[in-house]
Amino acid sequence: MAEKAFIFDMDGVIYDSEPIHAKAKKQVLAECGISISDERLATFVGRSSRDFYGTMVEENPQCQLSWQELAQRKHALYKRLLAEDDSVQVMPGIKELLEHIRAVGYPIGLGSSSIMEMIELVLNRFDLKDYFSVLVSGNDLPKSKPDPLIFLTVAQRLAVSPEICTVVEDATAGVTAAKAAGMYCIGYENPNSGPQNLSKADIIVNSHYDIIKLVK
């Protein structure tokens, strides 16, 4: 069994996705007559489409679409925005960090609230998929972040115990899930992820290069 294993969130940790997510979510909700503030939107960072759109539909009975239909519309719009916006890049230092962890010999998994199609789209676009031995989408599970199931599932598929796992997260929901799973958590401060409470993380950094120094 490995001495350590690393589990990464994707959005806001692997690449700077939140500005595009926010734009797509707002546009889709506006088409349904729903307005949402940036502050409220930030509370759903790291959570699944089911959580977000389910809440929106429940709170706005004037919307005639189901949460699944809203999620499908947002997904299609997001894919288009991702393909058209060349400014979308991986976070500085993430490739170096993944390369360093792999060189040291620790297994790497990914636990994201995004749907699997989007996970694979992003990792393939940035040529990162080969770094990850396991990919888990919270959308495929009965519960996603802040529930710990997603990270426990990654650990199980990596064949490692939760207590040797280190999770890298940028969102309140993800940090909560990692600690509930009994894992060490590195809180990554991404200003574009909105006001996230990372205080439960074991350590907070604002650069992936800081994490490289921690991996021995």
Rank of each mutant, 00 (worst) to 15 (best):
V205S: 10
I212M: 11
E120D: 07
I36C: 05
V167C: 03
P92R: 08
N192P: 05
E31W: 13
I101H: 01
E59K: 15
R102T: 11
A177Y: 09
V168L: 05
E18C: 04
I14R: 00
F6L: 07
S35I: 10
I211H: 06
E84M: 08
I212C: 12
Y15K: 07
K79A: 07
L135Y: 03
S161V: 11
G12E: 06
E169G: 02
E96I: 11
K216W: 14
S66Q: 13
D51R: 08
T176Y: 12
N197V: 12
D51V: 12
L77D: 11
L65S: 06
L141M: 00
D147T: 08
M10Y: 00
P146R: 05
H21F: 10
F8A: 02
H75D: 15
A76E: 13
P162F: 03
M118H: 06
K26F: 12
M118R: 14
L149V: 04
I20P: 09
G194M: 10
V13N: 00
S161I: 03
Q68E: 13
S199E: 15
A159G: 01
R102F: 00
P191N: 11
G187E: 03
C165N: 00
P19Q: 13
P191D: 15
P92V: 05
Y184P: 01
A103Q: 14
Q62V: 05
V90Q: 07
G54A: 12
K143Y: 14
V205F: 08
E120K: 06
E59W: 15
V134N: 02
Q64P: 06
A24D: 07
K4S: 01
V205G: 14
R102M: 07
E117W: 07
A42S: 09
L135F: 00
R73I: 06
G138V: 04
V13C: 00
A2S: 13
S112A: 11
G105A: 15
P92K: 07
Q156E: 10
D11W: 03
R73H: 13
L152M: 04
G182V: 08
L81Q: 06
I204Y: 10
N190W: 14
K145W: 01
Y15C: 07
K25P: 02
R40Y: 14
A22N: 15
M56N: 07
Y106S: 01
T43M: 12
V215M: 11
L98R: 02
P195S: 15
S35K: 15
R80T: 10
S137E: 03
R157Y: 10
D86K: 13
R47G: 11
T55E: 15
Y131T: 07
E3F: 02
P19A: 12
S193T: 15
G33R: 15
R157E: 10
P195H: 12
G105T: 13
V122Q: 02
G93P: 03
S133I: 03
L29Q: 12
I7F: 00
D130H: 09
P92E: 14
N190M: 09
T172I: 06
A2I: 03
H21T: 12
F52H: 15
H100I: 09
L158M: 06
Y53V: 09
S161H: 01
Y53E: 10
E84C: 05
V175T: 06
Q62P: 05
D127L: 06
Q156W: 04
Y131N: 05
I186G: 01
V45R: 05
L29Y: 11
T166L: 01
L65A: 13
D127E: 14
M116P: 03
D9G: 03
Y15G: 04
F8D: 00
Q89L: 12
